[in-house]
Amino acid sequence: MKKTLLSALALGIAVGFSSQVVAVDPEQSRLDLIEYFKAKTPDRPFEDYKNGIYGYDEDRRSQWEMQEEFPPYSDFLDKGAALFEKDKSAYIGCLVNSKDGVDKIRSSYPYFNEKLQQVVTLEGDINRCRTEAGLKAFGWKKGDIAAVSSYLANEARGQKINVVIESEGAKKAFADGERLFVEPSGQLGLACASCHVYNASRKARSDILSPLLGHTTHFPVWRLKWAGAGTLHRRYEGCHKNMRSAPRKVQGEEYRNLEFFSAYMSNGLEINGPSVRQ
């Protein structure tokens, strides 16, 4: 069987990081990942990976389910709804599929813009729509942008992630995101895959390491550590700092490609953001 870069590393095969090592095959990478986690945790259904770490610890899952009955982010969702309604004219017709309903927006991102030849994220488009309407852009990592994004995620709950890759440009963006995910970096010589593939379900101190499968379903997240909400790219930045690796630019090309890769790998899983995490 032809091995993708991710599957080769998961099997412990030593590879270099040139583009000649493996052919880019996004769907094979996704199927390899599903099979890897199926072998790792055979009793866990695919559909449950939308719940991240809560599929590994019954006590934490019980606590989380109780939190979801009276979520700590409920006021934050109200804030996001109010912010969206305040500038609704800037968003409707600008955000993808917004004319079909607010609930259709979140599931349309991220996507590869063939004209621009780059990945477009929801938060990126929120700020683009604002600036094109003459409004001030939000900060990228938390606060108002996380509130609006959380509101749109909540409206889209139950819809499935469906990232499409049809062109060579999109395939390259996926490959670049995959490379960033698997390539070791920083003083500790770790990769994203070190924690979120090979050691998923294990503990780092008191934290359970989450699986790549389902990573983007529940963002933005309300983190207990943050005592608030944050975007996916805020989490990427924090992870790189923990790895003692230089963080990439939030909403820069590298993190947008990483989001594109991560979202594609979770195709078929339901959106259930925002959600509470450690």
Rank of each mutant, 00 (worst) to 15 (best):
K99H: 05
L135Q: 10
G52P: 03
V22H: 13
F84K: 05
Y111H: 15
L122E: 05
A39F: 00
K241L: 11
L11K: 08
D207R: 10
Y54Q: 01
N97T: 05
A82P: 00
H215S: 11
K50A: 14
V102Y: 02
E237C: 11
N272T: 07
E132W: 00
E178P: 07
L180R: 11
Q278V: 02
L11V: 00
K172E: 15
R202D: 12
F112W: 13
Q118E: 15
G252Q: 07
I126K: 11
L232P: 06
P110E: 08
G230D: 05
I126Y: 06
A229Y: 01
Y151T: 04
G134K: 08
K40G: 07
H233I: 00
T217I: 03
A227N: 12
P71N: 07
C239Q: 11
F84I: 04
I165Q: 12
V102P: 01
S185G: 15
M243G: 00
N51T: 02
S74L: 10
A8I: 05
A156I: 11
D48S: 15
P247C: 06
A193L: 13
V163Q: 12
W64P: 04
G12S: 10
E168F: 10
A23P: 01
A82R: 11
L212V: 08
V22P: 01
S149C: 05
K3A: 08
D103P: 05
F84S: 06
L269N: 06
G124H: 07
I271W: 13
G52Y: 01
Q251G: 00
Y73S: 04
A23V: 09
T217A: 12
E27D: 14
L180S: 13
K86N: 05
R256V: 01
S245Q: 08
K136F: 01
I208W: 02
R44A: 06
L116E: 15
A170N: 10
L95G: 10
L11I: 01
G273E: 04
S62L: 08
P110Y: 06
E270M: 04
G139P: 04
Q159V: 00
D87F: 01
K142V: 09
M265D: 03
K142F: 09
E166D: 15
Y264D: 08
T216Y: 01
Y73C: 07
G101C: 04
Y255D: 09
K249Q: 14
N162G: 13
L77A: 02
G143Q: 11
A133P: 06
S107F: 02
G252R: 06
D25L: 08
I161R: 13
D32C: 06
K115C: 00
T217R: 07
S108H: 05
L9I: 12
A82H: 04
F70R: 03
K38G: 03
K38A: 13
S262P: 05
T231R: 03
N242E: 08
A229P: 06
F260S: 10
K79F: 00
N154H: 15
R61M: 09
Y73N: 07
V221N: 07
F46W: 09
L188K: 15
A153Y: 02
I53H: 02
G189A: 10
